[in-house]
Protein backbone atom coordinates (compact mmCIF):
# COMPACT_ATOMS: atom_id res chain seq x y z
CA UNK A 1 0.00 0.00 0.00
CA UNK A 2 2.67 2.46 1.07
CA UNK A 3 6.25 1.85 0.15
CA UNK A 4 9.17 4.03 1.24
CA UNK A 5 12.44 3.24 -0.50
CA UNK A 6 15.74 4.66 0.74
CA UNK A 7 14.27 7.96 1.92
CA UNK A 8 16.80 10.54 3.10
CA UNK A 9 16.02 13.99 4.38
CA UNK A 10 18.18 16.61 6.05
CA UNK A 11 17.29 19.93 7.59
CA UNK A 12 20.16 22.38 7.88
CA UNK A 13 22.71 19.57 7.38
CA UNK A 14 21.15 17.56 10.18
CA UNK A 15 20.11 14.16 8.90
CA UNK A 16 16.57 13.37 10.07
CA UNK A 17 15.83 10.40 7.83
CA UNK A 18 18.68 8.23 6.64
CA UNK A 19 17.98 5.83 3.77
CA UNK A 20 14.81 4.71 5.45
CA UNK A 21 12.95 1.70 4.04
CA UNK A 22 9.41 0.88 5.10
CA UNK A 23 6.53 -1.20 3.75
CA UNK A 24 3.06 -0.59 5.11
CA UNK A 25 0.48 -3.31 4.58
CA UNK A 26 -3.03 -2.48 3.44
CA UNK A 27 -6.05 -2.60 5.74
CA UNK A 28 -3.93 -2.87 8.86
CA UNK A 29 -2.99 -0.56 11.70
CA UNK A 30 0.73 0.19 11.53
CA UNK A 31 2.25 2.16 14.38
CA UNK A 32 5.59 3.87 13.92
CA UNK A 33 7.14 4.49 17.29
CA UNK A 34 10.15 6.53 18.16
CA UNK A 35 11.38 9.18 20.52
CA UNK A 36 10.03 12.71 20.41
CA UNK A 37 11.89 14.77 17.86
CA UNK A 38 13.13 11.61 16.19
CA UNK A 39 11.69 12.45 12.81
CA UNK A 40 8.31 10.71 13.16
CA UNK A 41 6.29 13.74 12.02
CA UNK A 42 8.73 14.33 9.17
CA UNK A 43 8.20 10.74 8.07
CA UNK A 44 4.42 11.16 8.18
CA UNK A 45 4.61 14.38 6.17
CA UNK A 46 6.67 12.56 3.55
CA UNK A 47 3.95 9.97 3.16
CA UNK A 48 1.31 12.59 2.40
CA UNK A 49 3.64 14.69 0.25
CA UNK A 50 3.87 17.75 2.49
CA UNK A 51 7.63 17.30 2.48
CA UNK A 52 9.65 15.98 -0.42
CA UNK A 53 12.62 13.71 0.25
CA UNK A 54 16.18 14.67 -0.65
CA UNK A 55 16.56 11.25 -2.17
CA UNK A 56 14.60 8.03 -2.35
CA UNK A 57 11.17 7.06 -3.58
CA UNK A 58 7.69 7.16 -2.10
CA UNK A 59 5.07 4.92 -3.65
CA UNK A 60 1.45 5.26 -2.62
CA UNK A 61 -1.05 2.77 -3.97
CA UNK A 62 1.23 1.98 -6.92
CA UNK A 63 1.83 5.62 -7.78
CA UNK A 64 5.26 7.13 -7.38
CA UNK A 65 4.57 10.49 -5.72
CA UNK A 66 8.19 11.55 -5.28
CA UNK A 67 8.21 13.96 -8.19
CA UNK A 68 4.52 14.60 -8.80
CA UNK A 69 3.42 18.18 -9.32
CA UNK A 70 0.96 19.74 -6.92
CA UNK A 71 -2.03 19.09 -9.08
CA UNK A 72 -1.44 15.37 -9.39
CA UNK A 73 -0.35 15.17 -5.79
CA UNK A 74 -3.72 16.61 -4.80
CA UNK A 75 -5.40 13.80 -6.68
CA UNK A 76 -3.36 11.25 -4.73
CA UNK A 77 -4.08 13.03 -1.47
CA UNK A 78 -7.78 12.42 -1.92
CA UNK A 79 -6.99 8.83 -0.90
CA UNK A 80 -5.80 10.13 2.44
CA UNK A 81 -7.35 11.33 5.65
CA UNK A 82 -5.19 12.78 8.36
CA UNK A 83 -5.73 13.42 12.05
CA UNK A 84 -3.33 16.04 13.38
CA UNK A 85 -1.94 16.19 16.87
CA UNK A 86 -4.28 18.94 18.01
CA UNK A 87 -6.92 17.91 15.48
CA UNK A 88 -6.26 21.09 13.40
CA UNK A 89 -9.96 21.86 13.18
CA UNK A 90 -10.77 25.10 11.37
CA UNK A 91 -11.74 27.33 14.24
CA UNK A 92 -13.75 29.69 12.06
CA UNK A 93 -16.18 26.86 11.27
CA UNK A 94 -18.61 24.82 13.31
CA UNK A 95 -18.01 21.15 13.94
CA UNK A 96 -20.48 20.25 11.20
CA UNK A 97 -18.83 22.57 8.70
CA UNK A 98 -15.46 21.10 9.56
CA UNK A 99 -16.57 17.56 8.83
CA UNK A 100 -18.42 18.72 5.71
CA UNK A 101 -15.38 20.62 4.41
CA UNK A 102 -13.74 17.83 2.38
CA UNK A 103 -17.15 16.77 1.07
CA UNK A 104 -17.96 20.30 -0.06
CA UNK A 105 -14.57 20.63 -1.69
CA UNK A 106 -14.30 17.33 -3.48
CA UNK A 107 -17.79 15.99 -4.12
CA UNK A 108 -20.84 17.28 -5.90
CA UNK A 109 -23.23 15.96 -3.31
CA UNK A 110 -26.29 17.97 -2.31
CA UNK A 111 -26.43 19.70 1.02
CA UNK A 112 -28.84 17.09 2.28
CA UNK A 113 -26.59 14.19 1.38
CA UNK A 114 -23.62 15.94 2.92
CA UNK A 115 -25.55 16.52 6.15
CA UNK A 116 -26.38 12.84 6.20
CA UNK A 117 -22.75 11.81 5.83
CA UNK A 118 -21.64 14.35 8.46
CA UNK A 119 -24.11 12.95 10.98
CA UNK A 120 -23.08 9.41 10.13
CA UNK A 121 -19.38 10.13 10.63
CA UNK A 122 -19.97 12.01 13.87
CA UNK A 123 -22.01 9.07 15.15
CA UNK A 124 -19.21 6.75 14.16
CA UNK A 125 -16.75 8.60 16.38
CA UNK A 126 -19.32 8.70 19.17
CA UNK A 127 -20.30 12.33 19.00
CA UNK A 128 -23.82 13.67 18.79
CA UNK A 129 -25.40 17.07 19.33
CA UNK A 130 -22.16 18.95 18.78
CA UNK A 131 -22.73 19.63 15.11
CA UNK A 132 -23.43 23.33 15.65
CA UNK A 133 -20.74 23.92 18.26
CA UNK A 134 -17.51 25.73 17.55
CA UNK A 135 -14.26 23.75 17.99
CA UNK A 136 -13.20 26.09 20.81
CA UNK A 137 -16.16 24.87 22.88
CA UNK A 138 -14.94 21.27 22.80
CA UNK A 139 -12.56 19.35 25.04
CA UNK A 140 -9.30 17.97 23.67
CA UNK A 141 -10.65 14.44 23.32
CA UNK A 142 -13.79 15.62 21.55
CA UNK A 143 -11.74 17.68 19.16
CA UNK A 144 -9.73 14.58 18.26
CA UNK A 145 -12.95 12.73 17.57
CA UNK A 146 -14.17 15.53 15.31
CA UNK A 147 -10.79 15.49 13.62
CA UNK A 148 -11.14 11.79 12.99
CA UNK A 149 -14.66 12.27 11.65
CA UNK A 150 -13.30 14.85 9.23
CA UNK A 151 -10.38 12.61 8.27
CA UNK A 152 -12.70 9.74 7.29
CA UNK A 153 -15.40 11.90 5.69
CA UNK A 154 -14.34 10.96 2.17
CA UNK A 155 -13.89 7.27 3.09
CA UNK A 156 -10.15 7.37 2.43
CA UNK A 157 -8.07 4.29 1.81
CA UNK A 158 -5.35 5.56 4.13
CA UNK A 159 -5.73 7.43 7.41
CA UNK A 160 -2.71 9.00 9.07
CA UNK A 161 -2.55 9.84 12.77
CA UNK A 162 -0.06 12.25 14.31
CA UNK A 163 0.33 11.33 18.00
CA UNK A 164 -3.38 10.68 18.60
CA UNK A 165 -3.06 10.11 22.34
CA UNK A 166 -0.64 12.86 23.24
CA UNK A 167 -1.97 15.41 25.70
CA UNK A 168 -4.92 13.30 26.84
CA UNK A 169 -5.63 11.93 30.31
CA UNK A 170 -5.39 8.12 30.70
CA UNK A 171 -9.16 7.57 30.42
CA UNK A 172 -9.46 9.70 27.29
CA UNK A 173 -6.41 7.93 25.93
CA UNK A 174 -8.04 4.57 26.29
CA UNK A 175 -11.26 5.72 24.65
CA UNK A 176 -9.38 7.21 21.71
CA UNK A 177 -7.49 3.94 21.31
CA UNK A 178 -10.72 2.02 21.31
CA UNK A 179 -12.17 4.43 18.80
CA UNK A 180 -9.21 3.97 16.45
CA UNK A 181 -9.48 0.20 16.55
CA UNK A 182 -13.25 0.27 16.10
CA UNK A 183 -13.07 2.75 13.25
CA UNK A 184 -10.45 0.70 11.46
CA UNK A 185 -12.62 -2.37 11.75
CA UNK A 186 -15.56 -0.49 10.25
CA UNK A 187 -13.75 1.29 7.45
CA UNK A 188 -11.15 -1.35 6.51
CA UNK A 189 -8.74 1.46 5.72
CA UNK A 190 -4.99 1.42 6.15
CA UNK A 191 -4.13 3.24 9.36
CA UNK A 192 -0.69 4.69 9.91
CA UNK A 193 -0.09 6.02 13.40
CA UNK A 194 2.99 7.69 14.78
CA UNK A 195 3.34 7.60 18.50
CA UNK A 196 5.76 7.52 21.36
CA UNK A 197 3.15 5.95 23.65
CA UNK A 198 4.34 2.35 23.98
CA UNK A 199 1.28 1.13 25.92
CA UNK A 200 -1.35 2.18 23.45
CA UNK A 201 0.91 1.08 20.60
CA UNK A 202 0.86 -2.50 21.85
CA UNK A 203 -2.92 -2.41 22.29
CA UNK A 204 -3.90 -1.07 18.90
CA UNK A 205 -1.15 -2.03 16.44
CA UNK A 206 -1.27 -4.87 13.98
CA UNK A 207 2.27 -4.07 13.13
CA UNK A 208 4.89 -1.95 14.86
CA UNK A 209 7.80 -0.18 13.19
CA UNK A 210 10.59 1.29 15.27
CA UNK A 211 12.21 4.50 14.10
CA UNK A 212 15.63 5.20 15.52
CA UNK A 213 18.20 7.68 14.23
CA UNK A 214 16.55 8.09 10.88
CA UNK A 215 16.15 4.38 10.17
CA UNK A 216 13.51 1.74 10.77
CA UNK A 217 15.35 -0.64 13.10
CA UNK A 218 12.68 -3.27 13.70
CA UNK A 219 9.33 -4.26 12.23
CA UNK A 220 6.90 -6.86 13.56
CA UNK A 221 3.68 -7.63 15.34
CA UNK A 222 3.36 -6.31 18.91
CA UNK A 223 4.00 -9.81 20.25
CA UNK A 224 7.12 -10.22 18.15
CA UNK A 225 8.45 -6.88 19.31
CA UNK A 226 7.54 -7.50 22.95
CA UNK A 227 9.12 -10.93 23.05
CA UNK A 228 12.09 -9.90 21.00
CA UNK A 229 15.41 -11.01 22.37
CA UNK A 230 17.20 -8.26 20.58
CA UNK A 231 18.80 -6.22 23.34
CA UNK A 232 18.55 -3.09 21.28
CA UNK A 233 14.77 -3.43 20.90
CA UNK A 234 14.46 -4.17 24.59
CA UNK A 235 16.36 -1.08 25.55
CA UNK A 236 14.35 0.95 23.09
CA UNK A 237 11.09 -0.16 24.70
CA UNK A 238 12.43 0.45 28.16
CA UNK A 239 13.56 3.95 27.21
CA UNK A 240 10.15 4.81 25.80
CA UNK A 241 8.38 3.57 28.89
CA UNK A 242 10.24 6.07 31.06
Amino acid sequence: MIKLIKISKSFNSQKVLDELDLNIDPEKITVIIGQSGGGKSVLLKHIIGLIRPDSGQIIIDKIDITNLNDKKLNEVRKKFGMLFQDAALFDSMTVGENVAFPLNEHTRLSRKEINKIVNEKLNLVGLENVIHKMPSELSGGMRKRVGLARAIALDPKIVLFDEPTTGLDPIMRESVDELIVATQKRTKATFVIISHDIESTFTIAHKVAMLYQGKIVAVGTPDEIRSSNNSFVKRFIRDLRI
Binding site: D21, N23, I59, K62, I63, D64, L68, K72, V219
Partner: peptide, 20 residues
Protein backbone atom coordinates in the same frame (compact mmCIF):
# COMPACT_ATOMS: atom_id res chain seq x y z
CA UNK B 1 8.35 -3.22 -11.80
CA UNK B 2 10.02 -2.71 -8.48
CA UNK B 3 11.30 -5.75 -6.66
CA UNK B 4 11.92 -5.43 -2.98
CA UNK B 5 13.08 -7.90 -0.42
CA UNK B 6 11.81 -7.46 3.11
CA UNK B 7 12.33 -9.98 5.86
CA UNK B 8 13.45 -12.50 3.30
CA UNK B 9 10.23 -12.22 1.29
CA UNK B 10 10.64 -10.94 -2.23
CA UNK B 11 7.74 -8.98 -3.67
CA UNK B 12 7.41 -7.49 -7.12
CA UNK B 13 5.11 -4.55 -7.69
CA UNK B 14 3.96 -2.78 -10.78
CA UNK B 15 4.53 0.94 -10.25
CA UNK B 16 3.45 4.01 -12.18
CA UNK B 17 6.42 6.21 -12.16
CA UNK B 18 6.92 9.84 -12.96
CA UNK B 19 10.32 10.87 -14.15
CA UNK B 20 10.91 14.54 -13.72
Amino acid sequence: DITTTTNGVTTTEHIEKNEK
